[in-house]
Amino acid sequence: MQERRASLRDVARSAGVSPQTASRVANGEPNVAPVVRERVLVAMKELQYRPNAAARAIRRGAFRTVGVVYHSLHSVGTHRSLEEISECAAAAGYATTLMPLSAPSVDAANGAFTRLGEMAVDVLIIIQPQPFGIDDGLHLPIGLPTVMLGPPTMDGVASIEFDHGAGAREAVEHLLDLGHATVHHIRGPVGAYSADSRSAQWAAVLREHGRPVPEVQQGDWSPASGYDAMRRILEAGEQPTAVFAANDQMALGAYRAIREAGLRIPEDVSVVGYDDIDEAAMFDPPLTTVIQDWALLGREAVALALEMERGGRPETVTLDTRLVVRQSAARPGAAAA
């Protein structure tokens, strides 16, 4: 038979103290005399006592665990956000339970919520995939404070999102201010909130300035899709002078297509991306792009989730973006500065 694990009562008996005193030592409470604390710690070591975390969690009604639902780690934003969420949760004394979705669908999300409920988490953070398909069929765990990294979707659920429209506006206006007659656009997947917002703002800015709105080219966030989209733009007839790619990976693909066509960046074609990935400053030339602070997104998500756990109300938070000007954009026909 398996040997019975030592209990806190066994520790108390061995140390010659009350179970309440042994409990205070086990929980790190300060109101215990040093000599008594040392005696209890020695007994714990001799008996190989290990706290029963599940039982303690049930007693206090909390598991000190943050649950995170996400679809894919391939996204730069998801990867960076998860890193920060895990670090901030740990700093607050919480573990992190990750639950990947098998598909970006309501059924997959509901299954993930059920499994997280069985694992017992205190708060839930959802990194919204594309397209998430949030509707009446989505069944969030009842009574569980929930933060969505994405646009506001449901009553009672907090949300944190970047101001994608403002970032796109700054990118397009930067190119127009340089003197480009119009700006071509390589967009992200249809149905992705970030892609839809950036694309809508690109077109709105051009119309506000009375500029032609070229046919938008579809991408899927990958460098390969940026390459294909840029080739379609170049093969359409009139040579573009400026391109706004909805993320830096697609901008990288556009770089290759432009160079293969015998054109120079930015002398012949200016390129602006979005995200400011780590490699953006290493592009040749360094890429002008819109920065999103993914670490801040993760920190804000954990802070908001834990505040809701303490009784705070769900909030809608919008984070600022900022254009980082490098050498990939210049006046039409001009050499890089």
Results as ranks from 00 to 15, higher is better:
175 L>C: 06
251 A>M: 04
185 H>I: 08
200 A>V: 08
172 V>T: 08
264 R>G: 09
238 E>V: 13
273 G>L: 13
268 D>R: 08
276 D>Y: 11
165 G>K: 15
160 I>S: 06
278 D>G: 09
276 D>C: 11
275 D>Q: 03
161 E>P: 00
228 D>I: 01
233 I>C: 01
254 A>D: 04
207 R>C: 08
265 I>G: 02
211 R>D: 07
261 A>F: 11
242 A>D: 02
162 F>T: 03
188 G>L: 08
157 V>L: 06
233 I>Y: 04
186 I>E: 02
228 D>P: 02
266 P>K: 07
264 R>H: 13
253 G>W: 13
260 E>G: 01
233 I>N: 03
257 A>T: 05
220 D>C: 15
157 V>G: 11
271 V>Y: 05
175 L>I: 09
188 G>T: 07
191 G>I: 07
212 P>S: 14
258 I>A: 11
171 A>R: 11
193 Y>H: 10
267 E>L: 00
272 V>T: 06
278 D>S: 10
212 P>L: 12
219 G>C: 04
158 A>G: 15
178 L>T: 09
196 D>E: 12
229 A>N: 01
221 W>I: 02
199 S>R: 14
153 T>P: 00
220 D>Y: 11
271 V>T: 07
173 E>W: 08
275 D>I: 03
186 I>F: 08
200 A>C: 04
206 L>V: 08
226 G>E: 00
258 I>R: 04
180 H>W: 14
179 G>F: 11
248 D>N: 13
245 A>W: 05
271 V>C: 02
258 I>H: 00
173 E>Q: 15
223 P>R: 07
206 L>C: 07
276 D>G: 03
214 P>I: 03
173 E>D: 13
232 R>S: 13
193 Y>S: 07
214 P>R: 01
239 Q>K: 06
240 P>E: 00
249 Q>W: 00
199 S>V: 05
177 D>Y: 03
278 D>R: 10
250 M>V: 01
174 H>R: 08
215 E>N: 01
204 A>I: 13
176 L>W: 03
248 D>R: 12
214 P>N: 02
183 V>Q: 06
207 R>I: 10
262 G>H: 08
265 I>E: 01
179 G>Y: 10
168 A>W: 00
234 L>F: 04
201 Q>C: 14
192 A>I: 07
154 M>N: 01
233 I>P: 02
274 Y>F: 15
241 T>C: 05
210 G>S: 10
240 P>I: 01
150 G>W: 01
246 A>L: 03
188 G>H: 10
182 T>G: 10
223 P>W: 05
272 V>H: 04
218 Q>F: 05
172 V>H: 10
224 A>H: 14
188 G>S: 12
187 R>S: 15
163 D>W: 00
199 S>Y: 12
192 A>K: 05
213 V>E: 09
185 H>K: 04
190 V>G: 10
204 A>G: 11
224 A>R: 14
176 L>R: 07
267 E>H: 13
204 A>S: 15
217 Q>R: 12
180 H>G: 06
154 M>Q: 14
216 V>L: 04
269 V>H: 03
254 A>M: 13
276 D>A: 15
232 R>F: 06
150 G>D: 09
